[in-house]
Simulated assay, not measured.
Amino acid sequence: MNDSIKLNVENISLILQERGRFLTLLDHVSLKIRQGRIHALLGPSGSGKSTLLYTLNRLRQISEGEIYLDNTETRSLNILDLRRRVGLVMQKAIFFSGTVSDNILYGPRIQDKELPDPFHYLELVGLNPDFTNRDPNTLSGGQQQRVSIARALANDPEVLLLDEPTSALDAQASEHLEEVVMQLCQECQLTVVWVTHDLHQARRVAQDVTLLYRGQMLEQGEAADFFAQPITVEGRAYLDGRLGGVE
């Protein structure tokens, strides 16, 4: 077991002011993400899963607390360097103009790095090299999400953030994508933080889990322990489908 902590989230809150009111999206959340493992963020709708995910590469800015990447506070890092090291794949694939190859090489180009071979990244995500010259907008949903992961991997990330990447895919495409991510995690020691609303998926892919509810962290631990016996009333209700989302 790898107990090295890749991301350490310490007592973070995210508070917005809207129309004279304060809205708390995250409320003193702490968690540890272990290196080379898949960590699932769970909870009903409106619990703060995606918000928390986006704070990890500063797409959302925290109001208080600290987030550490390899013991370095992320706000002290150059934002482009942070987002290279902590890649993000969103729920719906969004592409730049150009070919699949152009999209995969986008990150290395803006960093003025030596351009890698896009074939390598297509192979990593299980796509044929023939895809390089295709328009990504003509691909199936599952293929598009694989290209999104390939694009993130071309930046040589240490952490991959996944925001419900299979929610719009059919069962077969979802399982293929799960296999790709699990293999990358195992072979490349990639650390993955995966937001999912699908408990069956979380059982298949996750080694660690965090349960969020109304912006607070309720449980954190190994996935097998959580699914076997949650320690909170809310955790048991969530697994039974009785924990409602936030309106």
Rank of each mutant, 00 (worst) to 15 (best):
L14D: 01
L16M: 14
E18F: 13
R21S: 14
R37M: 12
L42I: 03
S45V: 05
Y54Q: 15
R60H: 15
R60P: 14
I62P: 01
I62M: 01
E66F: 01
E66T: 02
Y68N: 02
E73H: 15
S76H: 12
R84H: 10
M90R: 14
F95S: 06
F96P: 03
V100E: 00
I104W: 10
L105H: 08
R109S: 06
Q111G: 15
D112A: 12
P116W: 14
L122W: 06
V125D: 09
P129A: 12
D135N: 12
D135E: 11
N137E: 15
L139M: 11
Q145L: 04
R146S: 04
S148T: 12
L153A: 09
A154H: 07
N155T: 09
S167T: 06
E175P: 10
H176A: 15
L177K: 13
Q189S: 11
L190W: 07
V192Y: 01
T196S: 00
L199S: 09
A206T: 05
Q207A: 07
L211Q: 05
Y213W: 03
L218R: 09
Q220L: 11
E222G: 12
A223H: 02
F227Y: 11
Q229Y: 06
Q229I: 03
P230C: 10
I231T: 15
G235K: 08
G235R: 05
D240H: 15
D240P: 12
R242Y: 12
L243R: 06
L243E: 00
G245Q: 00
G245K: 03
